[in-house]
Nucleic acid binder design. Structure first.
Lengths: 152, 152
DNA sequence: TCATTAGTGGACATGAGACTCCATAATTGA
DNA sequence: TCAATTATGGAGTCTCATGTCCACTAATGA
């Protein structure tokens, strides 16, 4: 239902939001890729999209990289998805019926309703909400202590 | 968000549900394809999937074709989608974190929540509900009178 | 029994998404 | 100014969803 690209974009944004300094100090794409387990070269393309949507800034050269442009508390999950792969609501009849110009038949109304609920669910929480979880998603804390996942 | 295949499956099912006799009298794939504006050869594959899911019956030979096996009032939109392309809920951590074996981090909880709402929305209405709409979706009533879409 | 009708199966073509690789451009610090 | 660092751009690969074509099988009815 959600594409890989969306998944990658979300991971990268969660990672960036979890970094101590949101502005000024940047993370390079290699670090982000490692921390989120995303193929480096592909992530670069995704990061570019996020930069074009002005959710993050990009900086070339030594000490360059990417950093958030929007406070985590104001960045909705939906905004991130819309930056890389906007949710397409159904606003015209997929059958191309002229008589259905404006209003959809019940079938497509239902499908659009489902899409609406997705937007709704993804509008409710921000990056800050995700970060507030005691069970961290990123960075991958497992690697160092993976031998004893449940010590003590 | 929804694939073409899902769209095609839904159209075919709506068409079949709109036919006067649900059992016994079958519609052949060519007719269904024309009425729903779906490529014939491809629709055949989709119909086969629906038959394998036992939502419709298929019959070869003269006067063969496809017909509903389930009353429209008992057939949810979700059932049709699940027959051709099941909605994949997120039940494991996509990052492969061992420590996240059972319960997801907040990010994936949110994404799964969105998927849950889709299932919910698509469980609420049946084929019968869709059929009850005064504005028909299928068959394509436009062709005969398309010249005057809004005559009085 | 035979011709017709209609679904089934498999091979193939095309396009988009996911991904890799490498050359290039921009920025920094020495 | 130069070398190191990092993002950017473009070409190429791989896989899968979509779609086409055709030979084959099953069922019907004359």
């Amino acid at each position: 239902m959600f594409s890989q690209t969306v998944e990658y974009a979300l991971r990268a944004m969660v990672f960036l939001a979890g970094e101590p300094y949101h502005h000024g100090l940047a993370q390079n794409s290699e670090n982000i890729a490692k921390a989120t387990k995303v193929p480096h070269a592909y992530l670069s393309k995704v990061l570019k999209q996020l930069a074009e949507a002005e959710l993050i800034s990009s900086q070339r050269g030594v000490h360059g990289g990417f950093s958030l442009l929007v406070p985590p508390g104001e960045l909705r999950i939906l905004d991130i998805i819309n930056a890389v792969e906007p949710i397409q609501r159904i606003s015209y009849c997929p059958l191309g019926l002229p008589s259905h110009g404006r209003h959809l038949c019940r079938l497509h109304q239902q499908m659009d309703e489902a899409l609406g609920r997705v937007e709704e669910a993804l509008s409710d929480s921000t990056l800050a909400d995700v970060l507030a979880d005691p069970n961290p998603c990123i960075p991958l804390v497992d690697s160092p202590s993976s031998k004893k996942p449940r010590k003590r």
